[in-house]
Design a protein around this nucleic acid. Structure first.
Lengths: 200, 200
DNA sequence: CCTCGAGTTGGACGCTCGTCCAACTCACGC
DNA sequence: GCGTGAGTTGGACGAGCGTCCAACTCGAGG
């Protein structure tokens, strides 16, 4: 029996949960499996988390926080709108391919949440966070490059998420990063077509 | 104890499976739940299907068959490429919104299959069938309206599936059909931009 | 009317699940 | 050195799972 700070246990269990969900899927990410992956006894799980659902909820929070801070770095010094859009989208894909765990786990969790009434708000929260994050980029892009969007920003953001979601869903099955990149590039072109030079 | 032809039992169980998966999700679509939904005793399930997986596999087959025959009807008399693309995409969305069970169930099954080694081929088969189906429409559209595609047909098809997948994934969570329609329309415009008049 | 075998199914088996608590451990204040 | 109480966990509980088979049912051939 070793004494470990609750925060350290939480971090270890969340990391283990991410690995198990990404590797074996939500259906196999039981409290026992996660605790074993973290090299802890089963009972430690409920010593840290009130329930299995609570752990999933905190995992989503930690993934989303880590992810939104990551995207901003890829676009800081894009010289043109085209570079900005390409860097943001292709950068997202590159990171997902290089380290798929977070992306895989998040899709797994959203799919799992959809059909559960008490977890449906989790799926909604994921989209809400993504929407807010993408919206800030869309607005920033418009400001930085002096363009405005032909359609409401909300629709631009939604289309971005449609493309990234669709690319990710397909990539999760066939793991074909090059084809995914071409689809993403088509989406990027479509986005660029939605921008026009501001009148003044 | 009533005597029912095995084919009728199979049909009843498949219909029940579709309802249960769409309503409660794959995780709750147990053999017991499906049999109960079909008003049959639990043991009837394994009297008809060798296993739970076998039932899912046959359900996918029946959904895909029904779906591909359905799309062709929406585009038979489209007078222009724009009408063709719009009818195909918006028609797909309208049908999915009006009767979501098949669409919901298929996404649920693909997500479920992804993380299971012995079912992963099911997810691949779904995309293969969709790809073949969409490819025939893309080629037919090119032929009928005398246009050719600026990029390989495979990439056009993949982009179509990216857009429909992304739209469906979002719609499954927020059930916002109007926003989904606008995203789909943006995808349609992008597709039209990929077509050019044939040189000869 | 009476077998009889094919059709049907109640119920059991072994497993995993989320959750919980009584009991064990051990650093710390005395 | 020695309680002691907070930290920790082995193991149990009840539920649900996929699967299976012995036993029941009953229409058809004699």
């Amino acid at each position: 029996m070793q004494r470990i700070a609750v925060e350290d246990r939480r971090a270890g269990l969340l990391a283990a949960g991410l690995r198990v969900i990404a590797r074996d899927g939500m259906a196999r990410a039981s409290t026992r499996a996660v605790a074993a992956e973290a090299d802890m006894p089963t009972a430690s799980f409920h010593y840290v988390f009130a329930s299995h659902d609570a752990m999933v909820e905190q995992l989503v929070e930690s993934i989303l926080t880590a992810q939104s801070t990551g995207i901003a770095e890829a676009v800081v010094d894009a010289p043109t709108l085209r570079d900005f859009v390409t860097a943001a989208l292709q950068g997202w894909l590159d990171r997902a391919v290089a380290d798929p765990a977070a992306e895989v786990a998040l899709h797994e969790i959203v799919c799992w949440s959809r059909s559960s009434p008490e977890l449906h708000r989790l799926a909604e929260a994921v989209y809400a966070r993504y929407t807010a994050s993408v919206a800030s980029f869309v607005v920033a892009a418009g400001d930085r490059f002096g363009v405005r969007w032909r359609i409401p920003v909300d629709d631009v953001v939604r289309f971005v998420l449609v493309v990234t979601d669709g690319v990710a869903a397909r990539w999760l099955v066939d793991r074909d990063a090059e084809s995914a990149g071409r689809s993403l590039a088509l989406g990027a072109e479509a986005l660029l077509g939605l921008a026009q030079e501001a009148a003044g």
